Simulated scan of single mutants.
Amino acid sequence: MTIFFIFTVGTVWGSFFGLVIDRFPDTSIIRPRSHCGQCGQTLIWRDLIPIVSQFISQAKCRYCGVKLTHWYSILEWLCGCLFVIGWLEKVDLTFCLICLASFLMVGFDLKNHAFPLWIWTISFLLLSFTSPYKSPIFFCILLAILKEFSSLKMGSGDWLYLALVSFSADFFQLTLCLFLASLGGLLYYALKIKQKKTEIPFLPFLFIGYLCSMRMMTIFSILD
Rank of each mutant, 00 (worst) to 15 (best):
F103L: 15
F103G: 10
F103W: 02
L104V: 09
L104M: 01
M105R: 04
V106P: 00
V106Q: 00
G107S: 01
G107I: 11
G107P: 03
G107C: 01
G107V: 12
F108I: 01
D109K: 00
D109Y: 03
D109M: 01
L110C: 04
K111L: 12
K111R: 13
K111F: 09
N112V: 07
H113M: 15
H113C: 12
A114K: 09
F115P: 08
P116D: 01
P116A: 00
L117F: 15
L117Q: 15
L117K: 14
L117M: 14
W118F: 09
I119P: 03
I119R: 05
W120H: 08
W120S: 03
T121P: 07
T121G: 01
T121D: 02
I122L: 08
I122W: 13
I122K: 02
I122F: 14
S123Q: 00
S123V: 11
S123L: 00
S123I: 11
F124H: 06
L125P: 04
L125E: 07
L125F: 08
L126I: 04
L126R: 07
L126W: 08
L127D: 10
L127V: 09
L127Q: 09
S128L: 10
S128H: 04
F129P: 08
F129R: 08
F129N: 10
F129A: 12
T130W: 11
T130E: 15
T130N: 11
S131Y: 06
P132F: 13
P132K: 03
Y133E: 10
K134H: 14
K134S: 14
K134M: 13
K134V: 14
P136S: 13
P136A: 14
P136E: 15
I137K: 06
F138Q: 07
F138Y: 05
F138D: 11
C140V: 09
C140Y: 15
I141S: 12
L142H: 01
L142Y: 05
L142I: 01
L143E: 00
A144L: 12
I145D: 04
L146Y: 03
L146M: 01
L146F: 08
K147Y: 11
E148I: 02
E148L: 13
F149I: 12
S150N: 02
S150C: 00
S150K: 03
S150V: 05
S150T: 03
L152C: 06
K153H: 04
K153F: 00
K153R: 05
K153V: 09
K153A: 09
M154A: 13
M154L: 15
M154W: 15
G155N: 13
S156W: 14
S156P: 09
S156A: 15
G157I: 09
G157M: 05
D158L: 00
D158A: 08
D158G: 06
D158V: 05
W159G: 00
W159F: 15
